[in-house]
Design a binder for these strands. Structure first.
Lengths: 365, 365
DNA sequence: TTGAAAGCGATACCAA
DNA sequence: TTGGTATCGCTTTCAA
């Protein structure tokens, strides 16, 4: 007998015992519980009853070793080594995905690692055979996790896209370019000409697409792009504050801020106040939160609620995609087209808040 | 050969192959890699080099079956069946814990389930032998998960406490009672007499402790507790809005709100505005976020940042406790005193925002 | 419709 | 210091 056995005090019922109790073979009991057709209804019922009575659940350890499937999916969440912060958007995305996993009998392995150790973690999870599939969050412009996972030959879905990666892969994304193009147009329609863009880190793909949309809208109206009004940084509250502060202190300050996430927007709001401007009269703030189809004037609306359920839905859809991909792979189907979903962002600016403030004071035009 | 083997195209290197390549036995290779002393330095070096070269990682599936340990810890996060919302505080707590787990070689299994299925999920995770330990979030007044986990004989740490549970268990909590007592006193010092309390669900233990502290402070000053100024609900933005709206519409409205979480506080702020009151003049809002040692006047301070790093720290500490408990259990030490940590909440009201507004208008006294 | 036995890939006991 | 082998608890093949 091995050492570890001695540690188990109330030894959990296992297949062997259960089979013995029933006077059946392990094979038959296993088949009965897993719904194989070649079991008589009478035995199947007896087996189920006994399993129920003894509160039997097969050991995932043994099961995964025997089947070669771990029934586990990993999400690797990068934590910024600079700010030690996790984008809160992940929690709703994961909640949505988690629901889908439960339904399908998968466990969710959550791995929180610094940016710098991402690659190692992906490689580890796969090589240790810990997971059947992965979700990739926050891809960069040319994200090397994508070729890596291809090489490791494991199913994965990217939440977002990576413009620099040419090979095919499965993804689910929001149409960031279009969303920002429309938001910018909207502000232009209202008369704003000095529109600041507070964007995420320049290395991230979504930030690139968002700048793109913003610039496109400006150019279309013949408004010059002013590099001093564009900032790329990690999306912390302090970032919003500092950048907005600086921009507002110039002789030609912005009359509107287009902010990439709710976190820095909170900082912007504070900066507006500290600079002696009045929010809603001198300055507008419009935010777009990560992967959500939502734009709003900040401060007066049930923002969180709407944002969060949208992100949650994205998580649910990404999870469903991944589960389907794993299923196809296991059925031995080798080549099917990649699954790619583009969610269109809705603009709901002003719907329940009335029109956005229009720049009036002549000093700001 | 089993069926599943056929599915693995690029078969990962396993112990057998590695040992064969080296001309050693599996036993020796295993010992070398796991740092057992009885291996000669020469062989150990050769083994490590070969493992490195072939990118070998032991299969967690096989390893956990053989050792009886899964090296996995679960967090079960309840999702409200009513609002389908997850308390965002969990994400920071989990991020902190996740760091600690990585460091110690544990994986984190995250389980997102409706309130109603909590018990079943705990039982499942343990019976399926999926985890070596668990964190219990958001305990109720007499939480049945605690006796359940005792019965299942698995290490666990409760994030919070359960007043109705008399047996000993491991926990980490914030001194909620004292925090709310002090916050209320502070508002009383400033001259407020109509102080509203927007608390979490009455079934949750922390909400109970918070009411307690609030009431204690009022009674100590001879201010009667007005039940119309106390609300218990799930902490959504809308809840904050509706309740505040209603309270402000009475003939004797509150001059201050003490809010249990940042989410409803956002709603309160909106309600104050909609009701024609001016935030900072007619009405104060003080929030306390779950398990954080932080109170602030909302709206003008880098709230998120401070809140979040505090919660993150709690997660880190809870994880460290659990890892230690698991270690002790595995060393065969049977009875040690429970680990119990009470974190004191700091009040930082007014430190960087200046004094809180004092009620002035005579109609509100 | 049932059962016996060979894996799955590690660890750990016992012998050399 | 090394190796042979039983074992963990299942699934799956093959034979009856």
């Amino acid at each position: 007998m091995n050492f570890q056995s001695a540690l188990i005090f109330i030894s959990a019922m296992n297949l062997k015992e259960l089979a013995h109790n029933l006077g059946l073979s392990q094979t038959t009991v296993s088949r009965a519980l897993n719904g194989y057709p070649e079991v008589s209804e009478a035995t199947r019922r007896k087996v189920h009853e006994a399993a129920e009575a003894h509160n039997y659940r097969p050991s995932v350890r043994a099961k995964s070793l025997a089947t070669g499937r771990s029934m586990t999916i990993a999400h690797v969440v990068p934590v910024s080594s600079q700010h030690e912060m996790v984008n809160p958007i992940f929690s709703d995305f994961i909640a949505g995905a988690g629901e889908e996993y439960s339904r399908a009998g998968y466990d969710l392995l959550l791995s929180v690692v610094p940016d710098s150790e991402q690659d190692k973690m992906y490689r580890d999870l796969v090589t240790r055979q810990a997971v059947d599939g992965l979700i990739v969050q926050a891809p960069t412009l040319t994200d090397n996790r994508i070729p890596l996972l291809h090489e490791l030959n494991i199913p994965f879905v990217v939440h977002g896209r990576s413009s620099g990666v040419l090979s095919d892969y499965n993804w689910l994304d929001v149409n960031n370019r279009r969303a920002f193009e429309r938001a910018t147009s909207l502000l232009l329609d209202l008369g704003h000409r000095r529109i600041a863009l507070l964007n995420g880190l320049a290395t991230l793909d979504f930030a690139h697409r968002r700048s793109d949309g913003y610039k496109r809208a400006l150019l279309e109206r013949g408004v010059a792009v002013d590099p001093d009004l564009i900032a790329h940084e990690e999306m912390t509250e302090n970032y919003g504050y500092e950048v907005a502060r600086k921009m507002l202190a110039t002789s030609n300050p912005p009359t509107a801020f287009l902010v990439s996430s709710i976190i820095p927007a909170i900082g912007v709001r504070r900066a507006v106040k500290d600079a002696g401007f009045e929010f809603g009269r001198d300055v507008s703030i419009v935010i777009h939160d990560d992967d959500l189809s939502y734009f709003r004037n900040i401060g007066d609306v049930p923002l969180f609620t709407a944002v969060r359920s949208s992100v949650r839905d994205a998580g649910k859809r990404a999870a469903a995609m991944l589960i389907e991909i794993i299923r196809q792979r296991q059925e031995g189907q080798k080549d099917h087209p990649p699954m790619q979903t583009l969610m269109e962002a809705e603009l709901t600016i002003g719907q329940s808040t009335g029109p956005l403030p229009v720049p009036t004071s002549t000093t700001h035009t």
